[in-house]
C-alpha cells in the first residue's frame, strides 16, 4: 500500500480550452490553475456550461478535436507535462494513472461484453498478467465495489443503474490509478442508491489512497465528499479553498448566490432568491468580470477590468474585486 504523503502530484497551470465552431469561438475554459495533493478530493462545482467537464477532459487530453483545442497551459502530473506527451504515452496514462467515471453508467459500458471481461480488459492492457490472473483481479475488484464475484459473466443490462455505476467504478479503479476523475457519478441515481455508491467510493478512496477530482453541480454531494472546492463560472475558477472556507466563509458573490438559490432541507424559507439573468454566452464573454451582469454587489470598477485572483487568507482564493482593498490592507 502507498504511504500517504501530501505532496502536490497534479498541477494545472493557466489552462485554456476553446471550441472552434462555425458560429465563433466558444471559450469553455479560461485560464484556470489549481493544484492537487496526493489523497485529496477536489470538487469542481458549477452550473451547466461552466466548463467543468471540459476541464476534466482536458486533463486526459480527450477534448474532442475538432472542434475543441487546448490553446495554452500546462498539466503537470508528477512534474511531467501531459500536454507535451505523444498520443502513445498519453494512452498509457489513461486508464492506469488517471481514470474517469462518466455521469451515465448506462452508456459507458459495452452492452455486448460481460462486466467481468470489461474489467479484466483494462487490467490486461496496463499490467503484464495472464488472462487467469486478470480475471482473478477483476473478481476481487467486483467484490470491492460490493458486487458478488459470481456476476463476472453477467452483461450490463442484467444490472440496475446503481450496480452498473459500481461496475464502472471497478473498471476505473482496477489499475490503482493516482487520480480518479468522477463526472457527476451519482446524478443519474436515486438518493438512497446515491448514498450507497458514495459510501462505496469513500471507502475505496481511503483503502486505495486514490486522489479524486469530483465534478458535480450538487453542493450536498460536495459537502459530503470533498477536502477542497473550486467553484467554476463561465470557464473560470471564481472561488477556491478548503471545504470549510468555501462553505462557511463564502466570499464570491456567485458562490453565495448559489447557496441562496438552493432550497435547504434544514431551513424554512418562504421564497428562494434566484440569480437573475443567465450565464453569459461563452462565445462572447465580456472582457470584465463575467459575473458582472448578474451580480448584486457589483461596483463601477467591475466593468473596467477582469479581476485578478486574490488570496483572502490561508489559500482561500477569490476572483472578485470586492476583496482587492481587503488584501491591500493586509499587505
Amino acid at each position: 500500500m502507498k504511504t500517504k504523503d501530501t505532496t502536490v502530484f497534479l498541477e494545472v497551470k493557466n489552462l485554456v480550452i476553446h471550441y472552434e465552431t462555425d458560429n465563433g469561438v466558444v471559450e469553455a475554459v479560461n485560464n484556470i490553475s489549481f493544484k492537487m495533493n496526493r489523497g485529496e478530493t477536489l470538487s469542481l462545482v458549477g452550473e451547466t456550461g461552466a466548463g467543468k467537464t471540459t476541464t476534466a477532459l482536458g486533463l486526459l487530453n480527450l477534448v474532442p478535436n475538432p472542434p475543441g483545442r487546448i490553446i495554452a497551459g500546462e498539466i503537470l502530473l508528477n512534474g511531467e507535462n501531459l500536454l507535451k506527451m505523444s498520443p502513445h504515452q498519453m494512452q498509457k496514462i489513461r486508464g492506469s494513472k488517471i481514470t474517469m467515471i462518466f455521469q451515465d453508467p448506462m452508456t459507458s459500458l459495452n452492452p455486448i461484453e460481460t462486466v467481468g471481461d470489461q474489467i479484466s480488459e483494462v487490467i490486461k492492457l496496463h499490467n503484464k498478467v495472464s488472462r487467469a490472473e486478470a480475471a482473478q483481479m477483476a473478481c476481487d475488484m467486483l467484490e470491492k465495489v460490493g458486487i458478488p464475484a459470481e456476476r463476472y459473466g453477467d452483461y450490463p443490462h442484467q444490472f440496475s443503474g446503481g450496480m452498473k455505476q459500481r461496475v464502472v467504478i471497478a473498471i476505473a479503479l482496477a489499475c490503482d490509478p493516482e487520480l480518479l476523475i468522477s463526472d457527476e457519478p451519482t446524478s443519474a441515481l436515486d438518493v438512497t442508491i446515491q448514498a450507497q455508491v458514495l459510501d462505496t467510493m469513500r471507502h475505496l478512496k481511503q483503502e486505495l489512497k486514490t486522489s479524486m477530482l469530483m465534478i458535480t453541480h450538487d453542493l450536498g454531494v460536495v459537502a459530503e465528499t470533498s477536502d477542497n472546492v473550486a467553484v467554476m463560472y463561465a470557464g473560470e475558477i471564481v472561488e477556491y479553498g478548503a471545504l470549510r472556507q468555501v462553505f462557511k466563509d463564502t466570499r464570491h458573490p456567485y458562490t453565495q448566490a448559489l447557496f441562496d438559490s438552493l432550497p435547504d432541507i434544514n431551513k424554512n424559507v418562504e421564497r428562494l432568491i434566484p440569480i437573475k439573468g443567465l450565464t453569459p454566452d461563452p462565445s462572447s464573454l465580456p472582457n470584465y468580470c463575467s459575473f458582472y451582469d448578474r451580480c448584486t454587489k457589483r461596483m463601477e470598477e467591475c466593468r473596467k477590468t477582469d479581476p485578478a485572483v486574490l488570496d483572502v487568507g490561508d489559500g482561500h482564493l477569490v476572483k472578485c474585486l470586492l476583496f482587492a482593498s481587503e488584501r491591500s490592507s493586509h499587505e
Partner: peptide, 13 residues
C-alpha cells in the same frame, strides 16, 4: 432512510 440519504450542504450538521 430517504431523508437521511439526502446529501446536505451544511457541513456542520
Amino acid at each position: 432512510a430517504l431523508l437521511s440519504a439526502i446529501p446536505h450542504s451544511d457541513i456542520d450538521m
